[in-house]
Write a protein that binds this DNA or RNA. Structure first.
Lengths: 139, 139
DNA sequence: CGAGATTACATGCAATCGCATCTAATGCAA
DNA sequence: TTGCATTAGATGCGATTGCATGTAATCTCG
């Protein structure tokens, strides 16, 4: 069915088409999250994502770099994002006594409440925006 | 196999996992394009994408809004992006005589040359970064 | 024809981002 | 211990973005 050596070869058009579909899905979903989370809960997508990671992981005390990796932002962007969340009272910054260069980012009760309030909105946007062209997700 | 009504139901975890995979693929591919296209050809991913659309479509004369929709940018962002490409000599702005509010964006010979030079880099990045977790793309 | 609505694009502005750099704390070797 | 490299996070800076608005041309309806 395939010429020799073509099993792992992918046509250039297929890759480009996949990339463009990824771009389109990313743009529409991201914009929808920005609008819905922003209007209803005063959160940006990245901010929600950080809170979401902190809540789901169970534990407290996160390093800045750890969160930066999780949400695909630079260390500097995460530093400022944490500063915004701190100003909003959603997380706290505690000096790590074991290594006083670092800090522990801790979610506050208000942070948990805001996340809990925003969670249904977030999931609803994903379900509405992301599902149509990803039928492979049916369990 | 499925309980009634579950055929189109998708587990929340599956949707979230799909979204996070999309975010991860987008981030890694976008950053790789930014680095490679920027270093080797002085182009950003969006700028290349605009040139790519103009070249592949065959025709000349694009409206700003048309390009904005294609690359998922706002009209204002596209306006400035076109201004940058124009300063670089890669596209031209011609007043549309039929409707003097609008402009036609036209790629220049230098624009075509820059695109042609950057094309292999772009495709190589996509192939290297995007293929691993998308085996469904095999033709 | 003429006034107001609409459309196409440009631009002021504030927000966020990444890179480079800074500061402070730690680690390691002489 | 002392000095230098390294690491964690903060910050100055320039660039890009979206929203709101501005400007100019077109359209519409009376």
């Amino acid at each position: 069915m395939f010429a020799p050596g073509t099993l792992r070869r992918v046509s250039e058009e297929a890759i480009v088409a996949a990339w463009r579909q990824l771009l389109a899905q990313h743009a529409s979903t991201w914009c929808a999250l920005e609008r819905e989370l922003g209007e209803k809960h005063g959160l940006g997508p990245s901010e929600f994502e950080v809170l979401d990671r902190m809540v789901e992981s169970g534990h407290d005390k996160f390093r800045v770099q750890e969160l930066a990796d999780a949400v695909h932002l630079s260390q500097s962007a995460l530093s400022r994002l944490i500063a915004r969340l701190e100003r909003a009272g959603l997380v706290g910054r505690n000096i790590c006594e074991a290594d006083r260069r670092g800090i522990f980012v801790c979610i506050t009760p208000e942070g948990r409440a805001r996340h809990a309030a925003a969670l249904p909105t977030h999931r609803a946007v994903l379900a509405a925006t992301l599902t149509p062209s990803t039928p492979a997700l049916v369990e």
